[in-house]
Simulated assay, not measured.
Amino acid sequence: MSGPEATRRGSVRWDATEAEHPARRAARASMAAVARGAKADWLALFAADALVQDPVGPSPLDPSGQGHRGTAAIGAFWDSVIAGAASLHFHVHDSFAAGSEVANTGRIRTHLPDGATMDADGVFLYRVDDSGLLISMRAFWEFDRAMATLTPNP
């Protein structure tokens, strides 16, 4: 763990190919940083003008649907969305690398502070620049479909 914010206990389960690829490496590093709650480590993976769309398009998490561009906006996304989870668990079923990108299929299970859980199944795309920094992260999942999985604390 790194930094004072790294207190979350999440996980990354990787059932996909282990074949080396720069975008796959960045995607795995991104998920690992989020799982352990390491905001500074996560932000360090992004190029200065990177774009995060999670989910892609308008949603309650991004009403404009334009995403979050630049490390300041991406950091604000962390603060308003990611930081509110008690833990995040990633399960990657498959991973397809091509060019400077990787598309991962899988599920993100969010545990909320009150004990409720929610699952977001989707396709998660990561693109890197020539130095291996993320220039975009685009998550294709349906907000209403994920909310339908919300299971309150028993």
Rank of each mutant, 00 (worst) to 15 (best):
V52H: 01
G37D: 03
A48P: 15
V81C: 00
A72F: 09
G67I: 05
A35Q: 09
S80N: 13
Q53G: 12
G70A: 06
R69Y: 04
R25H: 11
A27W: 12
V52W: 04
P58F: 08
A47Q: 06
A40N: 10
R28S: 09
L43A: 08
A76P: 01
W78T: 01
A27Y: 13
A40V: 11
W42K: 04
A33E: 07
D49A: 14
M31C: 13
Q53M: 14
A44V: 04
A73D: 05
R25A: 15
A23M: 10
S80H: 14
V52N: 04
W78H: 03
A48C: 13
A23H: 07
R28K: 14
S64F: 07
G67Y: 02
Q53P: 05
A47R: 02
A72Y: 05
A38C: 12
A73M: 08
V81Y: 01
Q53E: 14
F77R: 01
S59F: 08
W42M: 08
D54V: 03
F77Q: 03
A85Y: 14
A47G: 05
A23V: 09
L43S: 10
P58R: 12
Q53S: 14
A35S: 13
A26F: 02
P58H: 10
A27P: 08
A29V: 09
I82L: 15
P63H: 10
A38V: 00
S59C: 11
S59Y: 07
Q66R: 14
F46K: 01
T71R: 15
P58T: 11
A23T: 09
V52A: 06
S64A: 14
A48E: 15
V56H: 07
D54K: 00
A29G: 13
M31K: 05
S30N: 13
A40H: 07
G57F: 02
H68F: 13
V56Q: 11
A33I: 02
D41K: 06
I74M: 08
D49V: 09
R25M: 12
A38K: 01
V34W: 02
V56T: 09
D62I: 04
A33P: 04
S59W: 08
S80V: 11
T71Y: 04
L61W: 10
S30G: 13
A72H: 10
P55T: 10
D54H: 04
G75K: 06
R69F: 06
A73I: 07
K39F: 04
G67D: 02
W78R: 00
P58K: 11
A50Y: 03
G57Q: 04
A44E: 13
P60L: 08
W78C: 00
G65D: 06
Q53D: 09
D41T: 08
K39S: 00
A48G: 14
A72V: 14
D41M: 07
A48F: 09
F77C: 03
G70T: 03
V34N: 00
R69I: 05
F46Q: 01
G65T: 06
P63I: 12
R69D: 03
A44G: 12
A38I: 00
